[in-house]
Amino acid sequence: MRATRRTWWRTGLGVVFTAFMLFPVYWMINVSFTRDQDMRKSPPYWFPVHGTLEGYRAVLEQQGPYLATSLVVGLGTVALTLVIAAPAAYSLAKLRPRGGGVLSFVLLIAQMIPGVIMAMGFYAIYLSTGVLNTVPGLIVADSTLAVPFAVLIFTAFMSGIPEELMQAARVDGAGAVRTFWSVVLPVSRNSVITVSLFAFLWAWSDFVFASTLDQGGGRQPITLGIYHYIGNNNQQWNAIMATAVVASIPATVLLVIAQRYVAAGVTAGAVKD
C-alpha cells in the first residue's frame, strides 16, 4: 500500500519533468498550427485554438523536393556506411589483421574531428574534382559521420559471435566471404539495424556538410530547406515550424519502433560492456 503510493508520487514528478523538458517540442507543434494573424499575439495562445493547416499546406507545396533529396541522401548514406563498415568490422573482429588495434584507435579519434573542419577539406577536394553540389558528394561526406561509429559497433558485436559458429561454416567448406555473408551478417541483424538507424538519422539531420558542400546545388536536403526559410527573413513561422515538425518524423519513428536500439546506440560509444 505504502509502496504503491510512493511510486505514484514518482510517476507524477516524472511526468512533470518530462513535460517541462518536452515543452519546446510541444511549442513547435503548437506554432505550426497557429494562424498568421495570431503569431504576434501577446500573450500567445497556449493551445492551437484557432488551428490552421496553412503551414502544412506550405510544406506540401514548397518542401517536397527537399524532403525527397534528404530521403535519397539518408538511404544512400546507410548503404555506403554498411558496405564500408560491416566487412571492416568482420575482419577486425574475426580475422584480426595486423594493425587492427591502430585502426580502431584511428576510428575513435576520427569521431572527434569537428565537422566544420572536414567540410573545409571536402570543399577543397570537391571543388577540384567537380562533385561540389552533387548528391553523391553529400552522401560520401555524410557517411564520414557514421562509418567510425558503425565499425566500432559492429566490431563489438561480431567479436561476441561464438567461434564454433564460424568453424561450423568453415567445415562446411565456406570461405571467409561466404561465412561473412551467410553466417555473420544474419546473426548481426540487431547491430545492422542500430547502425542503419543512426546513419540515416545523422545524414537526415546534417546541416554542416549540406550548407557547405551543397549550398549551390540544385537538389538540397530539408535542413537547407528550413535554413532558407529562416534566412529569407520569413515571418511565416507556422510554415517554418510545420517544416520542422515534418523534418522530425524520422527521429520520432525511430524512437517509437526502435527505442531499445536507440538507447543501445547512445551508450555504445561511451560505455564499454
Binding site: 511510486t7 505514484w8 514518482r10 510517476t11 516524472g14 511526468v15 519533468f17 518530462t18 523538458m21 518536452l22 519546446p24 517540442v25 511549442w27 513547435m28 506554432v31 538519422l201 537526415w204 539531420s205 546541416f207 535542413t223 528550413i226 535554413y227 529562416i230 513561422w237 517554418i240 515550424m241 520542422a244 523534418a247 522530425s248 527521429a251 520520432t252 525511430l254 524512437l255 527505442q259 536507440v262 538507447a263 547512445v266
Partner: peptide
C-alpha cells in the same frame, strides 16, 4: 523503477534525436 518510468525516459531522448536545425529554429522562435 516506477510506473511509466521506461516510457518517460524514452521521451527524454527526443531533444537529442531531433535534427539540430529543428531544435535551433524552435528555440529561436521561443
Amino acid at each position: 523503477n516506477f510506473r511509466l518510468s521506461t516510457t518517460l525516459r524514452a521521451l527524454f531522448l527526443v531533444p537529442w534525436l531531433l535534427p539540430l536545425i529543428v531544435s535551433s529554429s524552435t528555440w529561436s522562435w521561443m
